[in-house]
């Protein structure tokens, strides 16, 4: 167990290094001169030189990467090109709580609804309940977030026409602003979690030890909770990684379509304004947080499943 944790932690710096290097090199290879773009119509060579030094662009690439890594360790991600040369980390710190809050709420919601749905579908195999849930899962799979948003807004509008009351279509700040983004964000991972739960439970139900448990006369409740669910729970844990990946891509779409001041919206604005340091910073922060969360999931997985411990 300890060896496994150690091994995971030893490979962590390697992953972090490669992620930061890849992000750095893509931005480094960015075509065009960002300083010229920054200066607009001004062509003063002295200012140009000063700005180049300020952004560290006069150094060779390996030194730039070294500085970048050093800065990263101290929580410094460089300066934004656009936002009056504000530090990137400041901009990210503004958006991070919003995105994390939204993502975490959506993830908990999709786990709390998705797992029971999958369970019901598996236990009531070949019944209308299963068919209904499978249809829902299929619909959630086929409806991407940017299609679900207009559907919800259309329903919202119809409700408004009928009752004179509606949820805000976009914006941020009040509790009711959370409703639609959270629903949209959780929809995609909810379907995925339900699907994995269902197939994982069905697979366990076909195992011999379930038949044995039933044959020796255990009450069905005990078979389900002690024998079935505990074994089915292991593969279900692995969905959290992909579910978080859904959330990250979802955050870009949902935050920019609902004008929510999170990291996704910040990145999309930075993309439109070609603010490379901000794009680079948000990418690194998002990738690193997912690397860390995957590490936690992996460790959790080996805690729950003794077989993984043996193989590790």
């Amino acid at each position: 167990m300890l060896r496994l944790i150690l091994r995971r932690f030893i490979s962590l710096p390697f992953v972090i290094l490669s992620v930061t290097f890849l992000t750095f090199i893509v931005s480094y290879l960015a075509p065009g001169d960002p300083i010229l773009a920054l200066m607009g119509n001004q062509r003063d060579p002295e200012i140009y030189a000063r700005l180049r030094t300020l952004y560290g662009l006069d150094l060779p690439w390996y030194q730039q990467y070294g500085e970048y890594l050093g800065g990263l360790l101290q929580g410094d991600l460089g300066l934004s090109f656009r936002f009056a040369q504000r530090p990137v980390i400041e901009l990210i710190q503004g958006g991070l709580p919003v995105s994390f809050g939204l993502g975490l709420t959506a993830l908990s919601l999709s786990v709390l609804i998705g797992i029971p749905l999958g369970l019901v579908a598996a236990l009531y195999h070949n019944t209308p309940a299963e068919r209904l849930i499978m249809a829902l899962i299929l619909a959630l799979y086929a409806i991407p977030s940017f299609v679900l948003i207009p559907i919800l807004q259309w329903i919202n509008y119809q409700v408004y026409l009928a009752t004179g009351w509606s949820l805000p279509a976009a914006g941020w700040g009040r509790p009711e602003h959370w409703v639609m983004p959270v629903v949209v964000l959780s929809a995609a991972s909810l379907g995925y979690i339900a699907r994995v739960t269902r197939s994982s439970v069905r697979e366990v139900l076909e195992q011999d030890f379930i038949r044995t448990a039933r044959a020796k006369g255990l009450p069905e409740r005990r078979v389900r909770w002690t024998h079935m669910f505990r074994n089915a729970a292991l593969p279900i844990l692995t969905v959290i990684g992909p579910a978080i990946a859904f959330l990250v891509t979802g955050a870009f779409v949902v935050e920019s379509l609902f004008s929510i001041p999170g990291i996704g919206f910040l990145s999309v604005q930075a993309i439109q304004q070609r603010d490379y340091p901000v794009i680079q910073g948000t990418t690194v922060i998002l990738a690193l947080s997912v690397v860390l969360m995957n590490l936690v999931t992996d460790l959790l997985y080996s805690v729950v499943d003794p077989r993984v411990r043996l193989e590790g």
Binding site: L22, A245, V248, G250, F252, S267, T283, L286, A287, V290
Partner: peptide, 9 residues
């Protein structure tokens, strides 16, 4: 290590 579409973006 890059979640979802992040690298493509």
């Amino acid at each position: 290590a890059f979640p979802g579409l992040l690298l493509a973006i």
